[in-house]
Every structure is written in structure tokens, then in C-alpha cells.
């Protein structure tokens, strides 16, 4: 007389889809916590302040790429601290953050963000 049973089946399927993230996190035994980053010892800050670096590091890297590759510039003056740095991923960034597995990759894996740095750059060995 009415389609109640079919409607309820549909509703249950929909609810299962909506609460899928909850079920999934539960099924994998609780979603992993935010990864801890291995920060370089003996350094108190990055080239810019921490908030800027966490949110906008990709902008800085692209800016450096364009400045170095397209304009042939070498040095970057920190906006926050006024210090001059060489614009180099492997020379400057990875001088402190020596291993990408313990720094870049942890957050990038957590947020499922791809980075294509390593298509060209090679991780420096034995720093």
C-alpha cells in the first residue's frame, strides 16, 4: 500500500553513507593523531614566522622557484626577520629539515597532499 519498507532501506543506506567517516575511523581503530614533526635542533625559527610557514610554505617555495629559475636571483630577505637566505630547497630548507620522511611527508601524508618537489630535487645525503 505504501513504499515504507523500501524508503527505510534507502534511508538506512543514506545514513550509513553520511556517517561513513565515523564508522571508518572507528573501524581502523581510531583515526591517527596529528603527526609529530621532527624539528631541527638548535634552531628557534624558520625563514619566516611559524604561522606563515605552516599555512603558506608552498607559496614561498613557488616564489623561490620562479625567482631562481626564471629571474636568476639568489637571495631572499625574510619579511619577518630581515635576515638574508639563499633561495634553495636542498641548500637552505633541507639544511635544517634534513629528512623529508620525518618532516614534509608526515603532514603531507596526513592531509593527503601531493608534493612534486621530488620529481626533480634529490634529497641531500649525509648532511
Amino acid at each position: 500500500m505504501n513504499d515504507k519498507s523500501k524508503s527505510i532501506v534507502g534511508l538506512v543506506i543514506f545514513l550509513a553513507l553520511v556517517i561513513f567517516p565515523v564508522l571508518y575511523n572507528f573501524a581502523v581503530g581510531g583515526a591517527g593523531p596529528r603527526p609529530e614533526l621532527e624539528l631541527p635542533e638548535g634552531e628557534s625559527r624558520c625563514v619566516e614566522d611559524k604561522d606563515f610557514m605552516t599555512a603558506h610554505h608552498m607559496d614561498l617555495l613557488l616564489e623561490w622557484r620562479d625567482a631562481v629559475v626564471r629571474q636568476g636571483k639568489k637571495n631572499y630577505t625574510s619579511q619577518a626577520f630581515g635576515e638574508i637566505y639563499e633561495m634553495s630547497l636542498t641548500g637552505t630548507c633541507m639544511n635544517c629539515h634534513t629528512k623529508r620522511e620525518t618532516f614534509c611527508t608526515r603532514c603531507h601524508d596526513y592531509a593527503d597532499v601531493d608534493n612534486d618537489c621530488w620529481g626533480c630535487h634529490v634529497e641531500p645525503e649525509g648532511q
Binding site: 575511523n25 581510531g30 583515526a31 596529528r34 605552516t54 603558506h56 607559496d59 592531509a111 597532499v113
Partner: peptide
């Protein structure tokens, strides 16, 4: 105007696993 995506994920995952947090780094 980006924000720290890992902190955002910390918040959403917290909501989804009923252990809510509000990380300070979110704009």
C-alpha cells in the same frame, strides 16, 4: 588566504571520532 590544513584535519577528525579539539592555528 590559506590556513594550516593539518590543524583543520585535526578538528574534523576530532569531530568524527567524538574527541573534538579546536587547534589554535586555524584561521
Amino acid at each position: 588566504s590559506k590556513t594550516d590544513i593539518a590543524s583543520v584535519k585535526e578538528l574534523t577528525v576530532g569531530l568524527m571520532s567524538f574527541r573534538p579539539v579546536t587547534p589554535a592555528a586555524i584561521s
